[in-house]
Design a protein around this nucleic acid. Structure first.
Length: 692
DNA sequence: CTGGGCGAG
DNA sequence: TCTTCTCGCCCAG
């Protein structure tokens, strides 16, 4: 038990850290993601209570089920008692979720200028849009905020969407209803303007996520990851909230926002840290008594007498503790989070596959062998999907060898096997357990070894397999190869590791979990045809996925109309949602080819990209343009679509709007010759002024 | 580099 | 009550 040796430092003045509001961060959280994936595969599920199960628990469920009292992480039996007609889907295989997650991530990446697009789990994404917002703030005309245009591409002044810059999009926090001040855009306050812009960008992206892919999401908009994420959880689902820096009275809104949260809700404060803090705070003679179940709020912790970065460091100090966690937590309590949104990377740092055997733990060598083989097969398959070059176009079936052999983007050096036994005893091997002070954690044990190189071979040992077409079963070559490699891996690597973990030969291990993992990636420098070899080993992969996505996106545009005014205004939203439409008039094909490289040092990948650029669906763009301008025309001044004509939503391939009419309704820019709709013209002119 | 802890969804 | 299947960062030795 931690006792009184910690010294609150009352004498010294406590340093209050200063927030840094330079950045603008968006956070997206797809609503009940697993359930949404199944609903998109089978839309009839949308109206029914749907649960996703993994073994004996409900990993998640849709909102229909939640309305019936079903909760996440419930036992299946319990959920079925509450909701007997609950439809259950098996979510143990994550492949489909990973695929969708990647797709949505690629979409968001295509809208990043600085490549800071970080995935957290499968269903959350952070975007650092500081640069996009800064650019659009310069574009903003404060005298005509209602007729603003958001430019999504600094090279293409007509790619973007119209919006009402006199309002925030979606919800704001604090929501100062009484003063009718929440959501007021103070044009004199740069941060306020930047947050307003970001709210529209987030709204646009969320709308597209929904319209193009069928995934609603919750969005958070603020100046760092911590705040953006917490803000996003205020209005869920299918909504967003922007955290204002000051409230209607000019007081600091961020601190008030943080103070109301339980410390356990703060991302970065996990169970361990929360427990240590609560132990300290609640055991003090101070006025902090258990109000409603031991829950300490950020405000209570922050204002605790003598609380400081140093005190927290002492409270949290324990063997193995992270250095500086005191300061980190102290910062969290003030809504400060300096951590950067990490740049998108295509290569994971590890890939692992596991299965649990709770109801019937593994006992015999035969069982272990069988399970290791199954896990290893999945692992090989995953390595081929995630560590090889993304094959051109989404129609790729297996990422395995169909035509040529794919290139490896990275080679894991290490293979690891982890197990957990059912009884919580750690592992029989040790005797010198040094601990005794801290909690006796029932946890995993693991052993690792070098990953043999044969796992990187693709072709099945050709003569033998191909000469046997008469087999009754027809495994695809890829499958066969995966299993063969898996078998080898089991006998040559995994079983030796297993014996190291469980020396007793004859079974009787009570294995409740097996996990195999490849890690320690060595990135392969990519140097396509023009061999230039990008600097060092850490090339920047992932550009081509973004590119690949782009082609896809252009196809989608053909039949999608972005009318964000159709987002249902939930009761929680105090503001009328700003209407905005997407326009994409794209008269200049092959933009990349046109631009001549300005400097000597053009990256090799850029050259590769330029070569690959080849698109020829201008006709579609023209049609789309026609529709957009016509829509603009239908409203009196600014593209207000509140008067929703129902036909607009239908994606009729044969557009009734005529192209000629469309062109005549838009103006030609004198400088660049782009066709620009009237409402975007003033922004467009400022675009040229900026780049004089 | 290995094995484990913690924090995230 | 720690349930599932992960992924990433960090630590000490």
């Amino acid at each position: 038990m931690r006792t009184t040796s910690l010294t609150p430092n009352i004498a010294k003045p406590i340093k209050i850290p200063k927030r840094n509001d330079d950045r603008i961060i968006l956070h997206f959280d797809y609503d009940c993601f697993y359930a949404s994936v199944f609903e998109n595969e089978n839309p009839s599920l949308k109206s029914q209570p749907l649960g996703i199960k993994q073994k004996s628990i409900l990993a998640t469920c849709n909102y229909v089920a939640r309305a019936r009292g079903v909760k996440k992480l419930m036992l299946i039996s319990e959920a079925q008692k509450i909701c007997p007609d609950l439809i259950l889907m098996n979510g143990e295989d994550l492949t489909r979720f990973r695929d969708v997650s990647k797709k949505l991530w690629a979409f968001l990446r295509a809208h990043s200028w600085n490549r800071r697009v970080e995935r957290l789990g499968l269903d959350e994404v952070f975007l650092d849009v500081t640069d996009v917002i800064a650019y659009n703030r310069e574009l903003l005309n404060v005298h005509a905020l209602g007729a603003s245009f958001f430019q999504l591409d600094s090279n293409d002044p007509v790619k973007g969407f119209a919006f009402d810059g006199s309002r925030f999009y979606g919800c704001v926090q604090p929501d100062d209803k009484s003063k009718a001040k929440g959501g007021f855009v103070d044009v004199e306050n740069p941060l306020c303007v930047r947050l307003m812009l970001a709210s529209h960008l987030a709204g646009y992206l969320r709308h597209r996520l929904d319209g193009d892919f069928g995934y609603t999401s919750s969005g958070g908009i603020s100046t760092n990851k911590l705040l953006a994420k917490l803000a996003g959880s205020v209005n869920k689902p299918d909504n967003q909230t922007t955290l204002l820096a000051i409230d209607g009275n000019g007081a600091d809104a961020v601190e008030a926002f943080m103070d109301a949260h339980s410390i356990r809700k703060v991302p970065g404060i996990g169970s361990r840290i929360a427990q240590l803090m609560e132990e300290y705070l609640l055991s003090r003679p101070a006025e902090l008594r258990d109000r409603e179940g031991n829950n300490v709020t950020v405000g209570e912790a922050r204002r605790y007498p003598g609380m400081s970065s140093d005190l927290l460091e002492q409270i949290l100090d324990r063997p193995g503790a992270e250095r500086g966690s005191g300061e980190k937590v102290w910062n969290f309590l003030h809504g400060i989070d300096p951590s950067e949104v990490k740049e998108a990377s295509d290569v994971p740092t590890q890939i692992s596959i596991e299965d649990t055997y709770m109801s019937r733990p593994l006992q015999t060598p035969a069982e272990v062998n069988r399970e290791l083989h199954a896990l290893a097969t999945s692992l090989i398959r995953r390595m081929r999907v995630d560590l090889t070059e993304a094959d051109i176009h989404p129609t790729v079936q297996n990422a395995t060898s169909s035509s040529g052999t794919p290139r490896w983007l990275a080679y894991p050096k290490t293979l690891r096997l982890s197990t957990r036994t059912k009884t919580k005893q750690p592992i029989p091997t040790d005797g010198a357990s040094t601990n005794g002070a801290d909690v006796p954690n029932f946890s995993r044990s693991s052993r690792s070894a070098p990953l043999p190189s044969f796992v990187f071979h693709f072709s099945p040992p050709s003569p033998s397999t191909s000469s046997l077409p008469s087999t009754s079963t027809y495994p695809s070559p890829a499958t066969l190869s995966c299993e063969e490699i898996a078998s080898r891996l089991v006998t040559e690597s995994l079983l030796p590791l297993f014996r190291r973990l469980h020396p007793s030969r004859s079974g009787g291990w009570n294995l409740a979990l097996l996990n195999i993992c490849v890690t320690n990636m060595v990135l392969v420098a990519r140097d396509e045809s023009s061999s230039g070899s990008v600097s060092g080993s850490s090339m920047a992969p992932g550009r081509d996925i973004g590119r690949m996505f782009r082609a896809q996106e252009d196809k989608l545009r053909e039949w999608t109309v972005y009318d964000t005014s159709s987002i249902p205004a939930t009761a929680a939203s105090p503001l009328p949602l700003a209407p905005s439409i997407d326009i994409d008039i794209n008269p200049a094909p092959n933009v990349i080819k046109d631009t001549t490289p300005t400097g000597e040092d053009i990256a090799v990948e850029d050259l590769v990209m330029a070569e690959e650029e080849e698109e020829d669906d201008e006709e579609c763009d023209a049609q789309f343009q026609g529709r957009q301008v016509a829509m603009d025309n239908s409203s009196t001044n600014i593209p207000l679509l509140d008067k929703n004509q129902g036909d607009d939503e239908d994606e009729d391939g044969d557009d009734t709007w005529e192209e000629d009419q469309a062109v005549s309704e838009s103006h030609r820019c004198q400088v660049c010759g782009h066709a620009v709709p009237a409402f975007a013209m003033s922004a467009h002119e400022r675009f040229h002024a900026m780049n004089e």
